[in-house]
Design a protein around this nucleic acid. Structure first.
Length: 263
DNA sequence: AAACAAGTCAACCGCCTGTAG
DNA sequence: ACTACAGGCGGTTGACTTGTT
């Protein structure tokens, strides 16, 4: 006995979407907005599974999709993000406006994997294929907290352990990844923090932790607690080494985390 | 021109997570 | 605390296209 199907499969279409189906979906979402995917097909007059509608909209019909070939900059960004996040396609997609997780996943599997292999780089480990295992770099990021709701005592330890690497990788490490050994504590903003937040829009080198993770306007967002607006591209509470964001990605000074939303 | 292989990508599947009741 | 459900995600499939023989 498996899980019950998400919808009545006997009366749903499968396979490629027709133009008419696309138009029905677009028209419905324009009129009623996204959400409630399960009931959407019936309401929109579509013989499709709700999941199928969601996928079609997100991956193909959404008006903000970029489409077209990936640029060299996008390629490099995907590689860098993949080295940090692994197969977290939705997170990677969040950093690439107009790109979908499915698109990036496909692009990775068809183009970038081969590109890295041709460079002699293992696409999974992001290390030279010929590199001896003794020089493996181990990076551990651990989050430890006792309580989800207790601001006073919630402690988040981020520990990055680096084991010796070869010289080339060390150079990359120095350029891209600032050494991290942070012990962060989420707590209500005190006076000094408030002052910092007052300059929120002028100062762009620190971010409240929840916003840095892309969870804006959440209950944990200290920014929204103080100015009522939450972080959009504002940065408070966690210092970032100038020129790099919390993923260690080089920035041009102004960071924009709006694209790192958890969908 | 036909047959086959390789590449591409939209779509599906099933599992996981968050949340409401 | 438990259950059911909806939404989200990553892995995989398969139809279609392009390249090669």
């Amino acid at each position: 006995m498996g899980r019950s199907p998400c919808c009545e499969k006997a009366h749903t279409n499968k396979g490629a979407w027709t133009k008419e189906e696309d138009e029905r979906l677009i028209t419905y979402i324009r009129a009623h907005g996204e959400g409630c995917w399960r009931s959407l097909p019936k309401a929109a007059g579509l013989l499709r599974c709700g999941k199928s509608c969601r996928l079609r909209w997100i991956n193909y019909l959404r008006p903000d999709l970029k489409r077209g070939n990936f640029t060299e900059e996008e390629d490099e960004l995907i590689i860098k993000l993949h080295s940090l996040l692994g197969n977290k396609w939705s997170l990677i997609a969040g950093r690439l406006p107009g790109r979908t997780d499915n698109e990036i996943k496909n692009y990775w599997n068809t183009h970038i994997r081969r590109k890295l292999l041709s460079r002699g780089i293992d696409p999974t480990k992001h290390r030279s294929i010929n590199e001896p295992t003794s020089t493996q770099k181990v990076t551990t990021i651990s989050f430890a907290g006792d309580s989800k709701d207790d601001y006073q005592d919630q402690k988040i330890n981020i520990k990055v352990e680096s084991v010796e690497m070869n010289k080339e990788d060390n150079e990359i490490q120095e350029k891209c990844l600032p050494d991290l050994n942070l012990e962060l504590r989420i707590s209500p903003p005190h006076h000094q923090q408030n002052q910092q937040m007052d300059h929120h829009h002028q100062r762009s080198n620190s971010v409240c932790f929840t916003c840095s993770l892309g969870i804006q306007n959440s209950k944990d967002c200290s920014c929204s607690k103080t100015n009522g607006n939450g972080c959009s591209n504002n940065i408070v509470g966690m210092n970032i080494i100038a020129g790099y964001d919390f993923l260690g990605l080089k920035t041009n000074g102004l960071l924009d985390y709006r694209t790192l939303e958890t969908k």
